[in-house]
Structure formats: structure tokens, C-alpha cells
Nucleic acid binder design. Structure first.
Length: 337
DNA sequence: AATTGTTTCAACCGCGGCAGA
DNA sequence: TTCTGCCGCGGTTGAAACAAT
């Protein structure tokens, strides 16, 4: 027996929304908010629509502060970074891009961004969806690796991490059981900046996990998911952990896994937190990277792209840490930063 | 100008998770 | 503990717009 439908399909309108419907929905929510119940909302608002449809329309289109139009290069980078690390968790990615919705980002990735990355070969020879994010991650990360003696400090006044050689900004996302069952949260380092030496010690993309025992609230503003408007922040447990740096290169497939622990507390604004690698399963691999059969994601299956080919598509520069994408369309080569 | 192919993106769909009864 | 209803997510679809022939 199938699941009961969420609404009376026979009596609800489907398809594109009219301006009148938009106005009705917006007007109702402006006056009454959603009332915490989308199912009953259309009836109250005088709409012949499914509650889910109303919710989607509101969240993806009518909600204030929705950003439409071109994605910036920075947004491109963030999407690539996060996709490489966490895969198609669009709502999490959207939470890092204010004004963007998960639907927007999903569409953008599927229609444009993927082509920027994989647009070189003729379409007949390409199956971009078969590029597993772990492979992408591996490629993006192997340009450099952290110094095994680094100390990493978090400065909560400006969301910046520092090693003796590099500082880099970060943002934080909260994961539930999709990553692990330990209630930990995930920190993704988005970009590195202000290198003090010629070479950055950290790759532009790293992916860490915050332990329950030493997590800290990031930033002054909560980041809101574009899909559901929910906000997430990690609470500071107040634990200051003595640190050891552990360069644990557990598995080449997703690049180097590095654990950072902090040893120095300069002041309150540099309260250290403990950051570990993403490993969580019994086999030391992150749950989200596993395929249902317990194998190591899709990387067990042959890729349509050779590793060298993808390397050529995605490259990093040690000076700027920008990714360069090449799009070869109609004999015209375009460089994206 | 007409036809065909391709791209874009809003919307739909079904499933899993969660909370409350 | 089980059941029910709702929410949110991510994959997919399909109409409209655009480009190529």
C-alpha cells in the first residue's frame, strides 16, 4: 500500500503559478506567516494548491531576499568546494550562499557549473554525473598538504583560522546523522587568504569535523538555509583542548585527511577548538562517502574521465588559491576564476 | 520562416526523518 | 512502542526560451 497523498490531487492546481496566486500567497504569509502548517495554508489563503507547492513557491521564489540571476565567481567556488566535499547536499550548500536556494544551486550546478568543469570533451563522450565528488575532492586537495607541525588557531572575531604560515577563513555547517551518528558537526574551509609566505600550507579545500567536546560558535550571524529558512549554529562548549597535530593520511581517495588540535590560547578571541578529520565509521571512512554496498563510493567503478584529464580541468594556483575552469565552447576558450 | 535540437529552471514527486498523539 | 501527519530534501520532469540548421 502506498503512502497517502498529502492533498486531494484532483482538486489542486498544478503547474506554473500565476501572478494572482503569487500575490495571494505572499499577501497571506505577510499577514499571517505560515502558521507552522503548510498543508492547511492553501485553504486559508484561498488557493487551490497543494501545501507543498505553496511551500516551494514561497521558499524558492516569493520569499524576501531571494537572489536571482548570475552566480558570482566566489559563489562558484563555494559550490565547487562544498560539492567536492559533501556532494549533492544542496540545502547545506545553499545555507552558505545567502539569498540562494537549494533548488537554484542544484539547477545551476546541473546545467552550468558542471559544464564549466567538464565542458571540454564532446557531450557524446561525457557523463559528468559519474564524477564522484570524492574524486573531485581528491583532485582539489592534492595540490598541497599541511605542515605536520602546524598549530591552528581560531579567531572567532573574524572567523579566521591561522597557522604560523597561513590564515584562512571558514564557514560552518551543521550536519545531522547523514555524516555520522555522533552528533558532530562539520566545518568546511572555504578559502585561504593572506598567505604569509610564498606558499600556502593548506589546500583551498579542506573538510573537518567538529567534536562535541570542543565545538565553538562561529560568527555573529546564523546562516540560514535557503530551502527551509532554518538557521544553524554550533554552540560553544567552552572546552579548551590541548593540542596535537596529527597528519593522518587515511585514504588517498578523498585526499589527505588531517586532524588539527590546538595548543595555544592567545586570548578569548582565539579560543581553540578541536577539529578532526571527517573519519567516523568503524573503517575510518566518513559515512557519507560510502555507497550502500559499503564500498568506497562510486570510485570503485570506472570513471569516464581519466584522473589526468580532470586534473587539467581543475587546477589551483598556490598564490591566489582560485580555481581555474576552462570552458571550450565553439573553439572559444574561456577562463573562469 | 519553419523546423529541430538544446538549455534552462520552476515545479513536481516520493522518500526519510521527526515530533506528537 | 507504534502510528500518523507534516516537513524538508534531493532527484526528476516538462514547458518555455533559445540556438542552430
Amino acid at each position: 500500500m502506498g503512502r497517502a497523498p498529502c492533498c486531494d490531487k484532483a482538486n489542486v492546481k498544478k503547474g506554473p503559478w500565476s501572478p494572482e496566486e503569487d500575490a495571494k500567497l505572499k499577501d497571506y504569509i505577510d499577514k499571517n506567516e505560515t502558521g507552522g502548517n503548510w498543508i492547511s495554508l492553501p485553504q486559508k489563503a484561498g488557493l487551490r494548491r497543494c501545501g507543498k507547492s505553496c511551500r516551494l513557491r514561497w521558499l524558492n521564489y516569493l520569499r524576501p531576499n531571494i537572489k536571482h540571476g548570475e552566480f558570482s565567481d566566489d559563489e562558484d567556488r563555494i559550490i565547487c568546494t562544498l560539492f567536492a566535499n559533501i556532494g549533492s547536499r544542496w540545502s547545506i550548500i545553499a545555507a552558505q550562499l545567502p539569498g540562494r536556494t537549494d533548488n537554484d544551486i542544484k539547477n545551476y550546478w546541473n546545467t552550468k557549473l558542471k559544464k564549466k568543469l567538464f565542458g571540454r570533451a564532446p557531450q557524446s563522450q561525457r557523463k559528468p554525473h559519474q564524477i564522484h565528488h570524492a574524486t573531485l575532492s581528491s583532485l582539489l586537495q592534492q595540490s598541497s598538504s599541511p605542515s605536520p607541525t602546524s598549530t591552528l588557531l581560531y579567531n572567532c572575531s573574524n572567523n579566521t583560522y591561522q597557522t604560523p604560515d597561513t590564515s584562512f577563513s571558514c564557514f560552518q555547517t551543521s550536519y545531522s546523522s547523514s555524516f555520522s551518528n555522533t552528533g558532530t558537526s562539520c566545518l568546511t574551509v572555504a578559502s585561504i587568504h593572506q598567505p604569509r609566505h610564498q606558499e600556502s600550507l593548506l589546500s583551498p579545500i579542506q573538510h573537518y569535523q567538529l567534536h562535541d567536546s570542543g565545538v565553538q560558535m562561529f560568527g555573529g550571524e546564523a546562516s540560514c538555509s535557503s530551502s527551509d529558512g532554518s538557521c544553524s549554529n554550533i554552540q560553544n562548549s567552552g572546552n579548551n583542548k590541548e593540542s596535537v597535530y596529527n597528519n593522518g593520511d587515511h585514504h588517498q581517495q578523498i585526499g589527505s585527511h588531517h586532524s588539527y588540535f590546538y595548543s595555544e590560547v592567545a586570548d578569548e578571541s582565539q579560543k581553540p577548538i578541536m577539529v578532526s578529520n571527517v573519519d567516523h565509521g568503524a573503517d575510518g571512512r566518513p559515512d557519507h562517502q560510502k555507497s550502500p554496498n559499503g564500498l568506497w563510493g562510486e570510485t570503485e567503478t570506472p570513471l569516464d574521465y581519466g584522473i589526468e584529464e580532470i586534473k587539467q580541468l581543475i587546477s589551483t594556483t598556490s598564490s591566489s588559491n582560485n580555481y581555474i575552469f576552462y570552458e571550450n565552447k565553439a573553439d572559444e576558450k574561456v577562463m573562469y576564476y
